[in-house]
Design a protein around this nucleic acid. Structure first.
Lengths: 207, 207
DNA sequence: ATTCGTAATTGAATTTTGTTCATTAATAAT
DNA sequence: ATTATTAATGAACAAAATTCAATTACGAAT
């Protein structure tokens, strides 16, 4: 029983390596087979096709991602503090796992088939978690209620994905955590520097 | 002379159709050739290879995108008003051109080769434009100065790309313009509903 | 220990698809 | 009309994904 998964894991290991160096299109089954020291046919014993192998890659890593996030959030109180930690951890994880980032951000996330994969189910935990935090913040009275919570989540995930994607496309040259505070500040307070206190009052009533 | 571009355009037309229905990987040259009613070899008269054809698709549309944006911004004063219009127009354009969106958002934007293409150069006008508006807002004193302008831009582009990408992945079922106001509100004011006026004061001084 | 049955593995054959190229057709120039 | 140049063709080629009949390894049963 562990033997079977061992070989499967061996192939995935090789696939991670090959797919993250080149991309999906430019990676070949024979490269992966060579690296895993199995015959090409063997791969098709464990995976339906090239795409299926590809989608199997981030399952485990994504589970780690969510599990560790939960750990990092332990003992933190207050929605804003949790969001700050979420932002930090999100960027930190991609900094530490760039090959995972390349596959997930540049290829999976943008694929229509992704929503049907196991990785997506794992990833959904993460996006569900941020939704919970948003609701918590609304109950605390620190997060605005006059905006759809899903749009609120899109603001947070949007900038994070954009920041990570840019970093990957630029070749991971700078430190991803560099602008952690600024991102946080923008999410919480927005770009506006209004002194319109009447306006402020109006938004509050908008809840 | 116009004959030559006519055939090239014909091929692009067919490519738009095929590439946006399936994706890059699952579209074949022979499908495109059939649809354009030319021989497969003819395509290679006009384009170096499949990828070159792919990247040629959004050149013209992207130029339109930028040109029309400029038109829509005409006569609007004040950074916030311009941003509001930018957001509206951005969403409006993808609503009207979903096949363009599918190619640009789900395939191009996330491709390392994209930054070297003509489409990217056009697209850069758009992202440069939002940067100008941000600077203008800072001079007006309505946009915070204690955050890197590039990060500020990433907030705006991030949520817009995320909103459009989600819409595309969900099969374009709902109206993309539905949440225009909410997006705007979040960008300008953030998710926070703080009454901490001392904090507010501190941020202002942070400029 | 030997046999038998099942599952895993192999790599050569097949299929699909991008790309090339020699040939043919069309167009323009003299 | 003849020639030169350019465009278009589709069969041939190459590369890579996928299949499959043959082989090997393994475990249980006798």
């Amino acid at each position: 029983m562990p033997d079977k998964n061992l070989k499967k894991q061996l192939i995935i290991e090789a696939a991670i390596d090959v797919f993250s160096k080149n991309n999906f299109q430019n990676s070949t089954i024979s490269q992966i087979a060579q690296k895993a020291e199995v015959a090409e046919g063997t791969i098709y014993q464990y995976f339906k096709n090239k795409e299926d192998l590809f989608f199997s890659i981030p399952v485990e890593k994504t589970k780690d991602f969510c599990r560790e996030l939960e750990l990092h959030l332990q003992g933190i109180t207050g929605a804003f503090n949790k969001i700050r930690k979420f932002i930090w951890y999100y960027l930190y994880f991609f900094k530490m796992n760039p090959e995972y980032g390349r596959t997930l951000m540049l290829e999976m996330r943008v694929n229509k088939g992704f929503a049907k994969t196991k990785s997506y189910s794992s990833f959904k935990n993460l996006t569900d978690r941020i939704l919970e935090i948003i609701k918590e913040g609304q109950e605390e009275g620190v997060i605005r209620k006059d905006v759809n919570i899903f749009i609120t989540r899109q603001l947070i995930l949007g900038i994070l994905e954009h920041v990570v994607t840019r970093w990957l496309l630029k070749g991971e040259q700078y430190d991803l955590l560099e602008h952690c505070d600024e991102v946080n500040k923008l999410i919480i307070h927005g770009i506006g520097l209004t002194t319109d206190l009447n306006g402020l009052k109006r938004w509050r009533e908008g809840q």
